[in-house]
């Protein structure tokens, strides 16, 4: 990409403020996807500690039993739930399901593909992620 192309760049891609909740969902989907990928790599590293024997395993596992560890795991729960629920919505949309029906548009041209079904799907993903996170925090800090 060259300067001549006048691309909006990463900043333009990631800016979730201008195009409604659908763009916010797009941004969160990318962010949670990267977060889960990072967790996946960290998880492989974590479980590989079993090779260090019982002591090594217990030592590493103790890191997840701290306040910081609990907050990190709560974030993982939030990312996982949002990515799953919103992923189902996006997959259905990608198949052309629930994106409306072609018709002659009337002013002010509200796009049928950005309909209430998808908005409900996005808000549900956020809500479920919040509930699951709070439940996870209650379990972890309630011990």
């Amino acid at each position: 990409m060259t300067k001549d192309e006048h691309k909006a760049g990463i900043g333009g891609m990631a800016n979730p403020t201008r195009y409604g909740i659908e763009r916010v969902a797009y941004w969160l989907m990318r962010l949670t996807g990267l977060g889960l990928l990072a967790y996946f790599v960290a998880h492989i590293y974590e479980t590989s500690n079993i090779l260090r024997g019982q002591v090594g395993w217990d030592e590493f596992l103790a890191l997840t039993q701290t306040t910081e560890g609990h907050i990190f795991l709560a974030l993982v729960i939030a990312m996982c739930v949002f990515h799953t629920v919103n992923g189902v919505r996006v997959m259905l949309g990608h198949g052309g399901i629930g994106v409306g029906t072609p018709a002659r548009p009337d002013y002010p041209y509200d796009p049928a593909s950005q309909n209430y079904r998808h908005k409900i799907g996005i808000y549900s993903a956020i809500l479920l992620a919040a509930i699951a996170t709070m439940y996870g925090l209650a379990v972890m800090f309630g011990e």
């Binding site: 990318r30 198949g95 072609p102 796009p111 593909s113």
Partner: peptide, 25 residues
């Protein structure tokens, strides 16, 4: 990735996001 911003800015009500998802269907 079905962000839908294309449809929100279209001044003629084309709704490209809908067409693209149908096409992918």
């Amino acid at each position: 990735h079905f962000a839908g911003s294309c449809s929100q800015v279209c001044p003629k009500g084309v709704d490209p996001a809908m067409g693209i998802q149908f096409l992918r269907g």
